[in-house]
Every structure is written in structure tokens, then in C-alpha cells.
């Protein structure tokens, strides 16, 4: 457990730069630094470490950037635009539509589905159907008279 002065010192020095401190805070920091070696070491580590961090900031200039940097972005953008457009996807879309139609037709053939009436009639079923059509025709003729 750190003494309260050490905690206060840590809180001030971690959150504020020396030039941001009030007069009383500056005095406290200076006095505590003199009397407490552990805090002094920690604070020096912070100051030096952060200075090194700032000093190691990247300073790359335009001549060091890959020659094809811009070209790579533009080329990838063109490829992605093409992919996004219908022009790129329509052969795949058409293929998928034909495949689903074929699959649907195959399912109908295999299952003899009851949901769709067959196109060709046989025997009594055909005769019933024909007489129905003839009845409709005679109704139309009577109406026309």
C-alpha cells in the first residue's frame, strides 16, 4: 500500500504535464521528489520514456512510399466497383435462375405434384372435360343470339 503522498504524486505526474501544474502542485511535486526515491525514479522513467516515444514518431517522407501505392488503391477500387455492378454478376444470376427453373421442373416430374393439374387428360376425365367445354360453347352461342 502506497503512502497517500506517493499516490497524490503519482496522480498529479501521470495526468498532467509539468507546465500544466499549479504553483502549489509544482511545489508538492518538487518536495516529494526530493524525499521519495521510488516516486522520483518512476517519474523520471515516465519523462524519459515518453520523450523517447515522441522522438520515435514515424517521419517517413513521400519518396519512401511504395511507387505503386496509388495505383494499387485505384486498381482495387476498379475491381470492387466491377464486382458491385450488375455487369459483373449477371452471368452468375442468369445461371442461378436457369438452375432453379430446372430443379423446379425436375421436382414436379418426380413428385407428380397435385398442386398443378396435368395438361393431358385420359379416358373418362377427358370426356368430362370436353363436355364441360362444349357446354360453355353452347352458352356463348345462345348469348350471342
Amino acid at each position: 500500500m502506497k503512502p497517500s503522498d506517493c499516490r497524490k504524486f503519482e496522480s498529479i505526474t501521470v495526468d498532467w504535464a509539468p507546465e500544466e501544474l499549479s504553483e502549489s502542485q509544482s511545489d508538492f511535486v518538487a518536495n516529494h521528489e526530493k524525499s521519495c526515491q521510488a516516486c522520483r525514479m518512476a517519474y523520471r522513467a515516465q519523462v524519459i520514456g515518453l520523450d523517447l516515444l515522441r522522438g520515435s514518431a514515424c517521419t517517413v517522407d513521400a519518396t519512401e512510399i511504395s511507387a505503386n501505392f496509388e495505383e494499387t488503391v485505384v486498381r482495387n477500387l476498379r475491381v470492387q466497383k466491377k464486382r458491385d455492378s450488375w455487369g459483373y454478376w449477371w452471368p452468375a444470376g442468369l445461371g442461378a435462375a436457369i438452375a432453379s427453373l430446372a430443379a423446379f421442373a425436375a421436382m414436379q416430374l418426380v413428385s407428380g405434384s397435385a398442386s398443378f393439374k396435368p395438361i393431358f387428360y385420359r379416358g373418362q376425365e377427358a370426356r368430362n372435360n370436353t363436355s364441360g367445354i362444349m357446354r360453355s360453347l353452347s352458352t356463348v352461342r345462345e348469348y350471342n343470339r
Binding site: 501521470v14 495526468d15 525514479m41 518512476a42 522513467a45 520514456g49 516515444l53
Partner: peptide, 23 residues
């Protein structure tokens, strides 16, 4: 951001102190 910076600086100085030994 404030609390992350506090933690980051605290950890940074502890690690740096450990890394560099006696300053």
C-alpha cells in the same frame, strides 16, 4: 480517453523502469 491515458502512462513508466533498470 482520460482514464485510458492515465493507465497507459502508468503502465508505460512501470514497464520502462523495469526495462531500463536503474536510471
Amino acid at each position: 480517453v482520460r482514464s485510458r491515458l492515465h493507465s497507459a502512462r502508468l503502465r508505460f513508466r512501470t514497464i520502462y523502469l523495469g526495462e531500463m533498470g536503474q536510471l
